[in-house]
Write a protein that binds this DNA or RNA. Structure first.
Lengths: 195, 195
DNA sequence: GTCTATAATCTGATAGAC
DNA sequence: GTCTATCAGATTATAGAC
């Protein structure tokens, strides 16, 4: 069962992504050097290029994985029995999922500008798909007369911005539990859409 | 009226700040070099150091000015005759002011991490002061039984995140005018706080 | 007030030994 | 798969001429 000397490809790849995410989120993509990432992983800078063609591809991989995981996780959430329950599930899901991926969420909002146009379009497409999921819920509720929403597009953007904002101030062990925060935000969203 | 050769201190200072803001917002603080800023202004890199001790002080100056101007502008807004009108004035003010300073708003949210701890604390203090203005409005409305807000701190964060989010998608000349957007957002905020 | 020149260091990425 | 060494160029900031 002896391993070949210095061969850790199964573990080094994920470690590079983890350390890159941590460093990019903390200092910003441009401020972090390949050498810093390598040092955090415990390899030399040259070794990184076995796992990524360049620095930008590393960033794209992080953003792309995050968005794919977000959509996949949402797909496994239960559908509500009506518009109101469906929206509550979305609100709670968004807060909960984003809080467990704070670094990735931060990167996805802050470092998009460091992607080339093709990669940027991919991430924007995935983000749009997620927004459309919420907008569909709002439209359905509006048509069923369960909600009173003057503009579903604006309501979509308003709700997502409001929910994502939790990431900027929430701290585990603070005044309120995550569950309580979810409930209070759901109360505000529910009233805002007239449900 | 002849000027001394190459003397433009009255105009170069503001130009440096304007170009730095534009470049930092577009590419990120770390990704922009002092040479790029100098080139955009039309001077050599060395000349920048007559106006700023270093790159970080330039960023701090931009963030600090923005926050001071935000607070000063809010201070000149009319007070509403009641909690409801007061909140509407805040909602419209926040959207309107932030849309006219999109680059500065973006920087204030994205580049805080590039400040040293002292400068960071200054900006955080100013931001907190602004948040407290909104929270006071919500508390007053709650006590007057004009609003029904389960948690004024969370409502403050939720409303600010929601309103600031307009900056990420609003484009002049798009589907809706700024006035219309203000009105729709005010409708959502009003309902969310039970007014 | 602006310029040129420069110091000292760091950058992303590659080549080739092991 | 990882290392060392290296390339070619960029970085912030300063010194001193004009």
């Amino acid at each position: 069962m002896a391993r070949k000397t210095g061969s850790h490809s199964d573990i080094t790849g994920p470690r590079i992504r983890a350390e890159a995410q941590r460093l990019f989120a903390r200092h910003g993509f441009a401020a972090v050097s390949m050498r810093q990432i390598a040092a955090a992983v415990g390899v030399q800078a040259g070794a990184l290029y076995l796992y990524t063609p360049d620095k930008e591809a590393l960033l794209f991989d992080l953003l792309n994985s995050h968005m794919e995981e977000l959509l996949a996780a949402w797909a496994t959430e239960p559908r509500g029995v009506g518009p109101r329950e469906g929206l509550e599930i979305f609100v709670r899901f968004h807060i909960r999922f984003n809080l467990t991926r704070a670094e990735a969420v931060f990167l996805s909002y802050m470092e998009l500008r460091n992607l080339n146009p093709e990669n940027f379009a991919v991430i924007e497409g995935l983000r749009k798909r997620y927004e459309t999921e919420l907008e569909a819920l709002l439209k359905a509720g509006q048509e069923a007369n369960a909600f009173l929403v003057p503009d579903t597009k604006l309501a979509t953007m308003a709700i997502i911005a409001m929910l994502t904002g939790v990431n900027t101030w929430f701290r585990e062990g603070g005044r309120l539990s995550r569950e309580t925060v979810e409930t209070i935000y759901w109360d505000m969203v529910r009233k805002a859409v007239g449900a």
